[in-house]
Write a protein that binds this DNA or RNA. Structure first.
Lengths: 237, 237
DNA sequence: AACATAAGGATCGTTGAACAATTCGACAAG
DNA sequence: CTTGTCGAATTGTTCAACGATCCTTATGTT
């Protein structure tokens, strides 16, 4: 209907087929969205700390956009759970309570649990395998930050087994929220190392087509991760 | 750190502790949020039809708010999946594809499926029972619109078994999206009637504490609902 | 007649300024 | 030590303006 490339698309698998993948990038973004991208990075990377207030004037000034545009970006991130918008008081980097962390892991158990009960395709398994291998490589290099990002890719790949774009998106946001908490871990190695081998084990259970065992294994996995996180988190409230 | 009520909080459970619950009500809403509420109602009730363009100027004028404020409201609803924001073209009431409907039901199977596998408390069961009874009453009165809303309450009550605020919120949004599609059902009775007795049956399985049967029953339930919806939906694309 | 191109109008995207509403801290009074 | 009051700072909202983009229609070319 508005598919301007349709005529070339059905002309068999031409070399142009690859271009299809880049089409998502093609949809240019508004200034507000680009501003939101910048702020999202800053928040998840820890540049802005939880609880910190984000001044409209200061940031609008620093980024060279108007207050109105910045406010639109704030709304976007507020809906993603990264910012906390308090009426007449401004926006703050979200502070997650221990209860929030527990809830995030409840959601993970539901979404990831459903995922590992499905029969993965060969291609899906390949992506998961790649993430596991990346984590192992990073661990061998003592690159614990790299282990963390590979780990996140691993879990995101798990969720794709659900074959649901909405669940993929939900997981994306969930992990962004979790990253708000990860920064409290002063010792990333202690947090990430135990899970490298468990990723591998979970992958093997999937490859062996034993969904029930995989689900049980994942539950224990998430229980431990949650506890590790909450214990490092509770003290400083 | 910034908890101004801390001094009274740890002073034992004073009568003031009850006030804490009302704190959520205290956060009044901004104009943008109230505008979003209005538009959300209009969209889900079908006043604005899918595909219809919502003119910034016209609506801002009609509601007596500025374009900037309206745009903030649009952002909110866009993130909820009710509006489709196309750069430089405006916002449109979202048109869900058959693939979207399939995805929504995939998510329902995951979230509601996890819910019915849990052991409900007496209080949770009471809420579910109430929704079932409401649907039956409305059906007896030939009030098929009423059956629809009671049905929605039923499924929302199911999801609360997960004890997860985030899953509750996800379900809320999911059902709002689904309501965009429900309007294509010209015969609400044919769509809602079959599920009244199935709601009752599912409730009984929960009361009898047979989670696996409940889950299986729900899967079939959702399969049928999805098919009914897609069949009425596919033709007019 | 089919197609490409150009012009025009409508609408969105963004800005900057302005003012009202609200919060918060400081300071004075009880 | 609590309560009331004031004022600075910040947010909430409006408004007008202008450039950018899209859609339609008209125009011209092959």
């Amino acid at each position: 209907m508005d598919d301007s490339l349709l005529s070339v698309d059905d002309a068999a698998d031409s070399p142009l087929a690859d271009l299809e993948h880049d089409r998502s990038r093609l949809g240019r973004s508004s200034t507000a969205e680009r501003v939101a991208d910048i702020l999202r990075d800053r928040v998840t990377e820890g540049f802005f700390e939880p609880g910190q207030r984000l001044s409209e004037e200061a940031i609008a000034d620093a980024l060279g956009v108007s207050r109105n545009t910045l406010r639109e970006a704030f709304r976007l991130l507020g809906h993603e759970g990264l910012l906390d918008h308090r009426l007449n008081r401004g926006v703050f980097v979200r502070i997650l309570s221990a209860e929030d962390v527990a809830d995030l892991y409840r959601v993970r158990r539901v979404i990831e649990g459903a995922a590992v009960r499905r029969r993965p395709s060969g291609q899906e398994l390949a992506v998961i395998r790649e993430a596991v291998a990346d984590a192992e490589r990073a661990a061998a290099d003592d690159d614990w930050r790299g282990v963390g990002t590979a780990n996140i890719r691993f879990h995101q790949a798990l969720v794709t087994l659900n074959q649901s774009p909405r669940l993929d998106e939900a997981m994306r946001q969930l992990l962004a929220e979790l990253r708000l908490v990860f920064h409290v871990m002063k010792n990333p190695r202690a947090f990430h190392e135990p899970f490298v081998t468990r990723n591998r084990k979970l992958l093997e259970l999937l490859e062996a087509d034993r969904p029930d065992e995989a689900a049980a294994f994942l539950d224990a996995y998430l229980d431990d991760a949650e506890q590790l996180l909450v214990r490092a988190y509770e003290p400083n409230r």
